[in-house]
Amino acid sequence: MKEATLRKPVAVATDHRAIPYERPSSRRRLLRRLWRERFIYLLLLPGVLYFLIFRYVPMFGILLAFKDYSPFLGIQDSPWVGLENFRRIFADPEVWTVLRNTLYISFLQIGFAFPIPILLALMLNEVRRESYKRVIQSIVYLPHFVSWVVVIGIATLFLRSEGVLNNALGQLFGMAPVPFLINPYWFAPLVVLEVVWKEAGWGTVIFLAALAGIDPQLYEAALLDGASRLQRIRDITLPGLRPTIVILLILRLGSVLDNGFEQIFLMLNTFTMHVGNVLDTYVYFKGIQDGDYSFATAVGVLKGVIGLILIVGANRLAKRYGDEGLF
């Protein structure tokens, strides 16, 4: 495209003496431009190399999905098998279980972990004493910066059979220990609970920024009209938050096949594997642990493509309903 715009003035030149110089001069102009911008390319070099090697070369790794990769033969010499790996995906009941787990956990997260930061931001927004607000914010933002190992570590220490909570329940009410960590029924709720603990506070930051952008005059006018607090929230604050909520929901829906690999990998154990194994962890177990590289790549590629379609689709949907969308 750039080349075309460079050539255009030459193509419309009527002076026939210019024609022999046409190509060299446009090429020379490009070369001169490249030379003039050489220091910019120098600055670009590390970053471009990074993106090529670690972000785009792996995209060729997609080819693995169409081969029967064997580490002894290497990527080049492993035989092509066409869509065999994808056929295996659809024939494998385990994949469907994993997909169901993924979607179930994701929708549980969207249902509970998504609205809580909005509520919390609304509450923080109603606090007029700045110092109080800051103290609360400092505390609720903190867990976001703690590692998942620490979060699951804390959950383990509190919830295991001989853990803090079971000790307390036992001593206060004489209850038998509840096996929170190995009971499959607790797995998804715990995932959500941990996400809420870690991210609910941090999640408010973006909503608070949006709330700060709402015109204060709207509130003053509403007060003059005698609107109550709840009416102000319903008619001014929530509509003001709408675009932010829509954009974040798009992002979340676009990544409905991701549900926090790090967290779930740490939470899984033999007892919860059948309800907690999600697409990301499945790819890891199949590929890295079982060495079924091609199959795991095929699962990963399928997930990537569906994710791409979802996010582009959700974005288009948001635009159709009059919101700004993401891109």
Partner: peptide, 26 residues
């Protein structure tokens, strides 16, 4: 030269990832 393509490339890398195994292979 080529800035638009680079920016697009960066954004595309955020939207699509080929997954764990190809990155591991690299």
């Amino acid at each position: 030269f080529g800035r638009r393509a680079l920016l697009l490339g960066v954004i595309f890398s955020m939207l699509f990832s080929p997954g764990l195994i190809p990155s591991y292979m690299v």
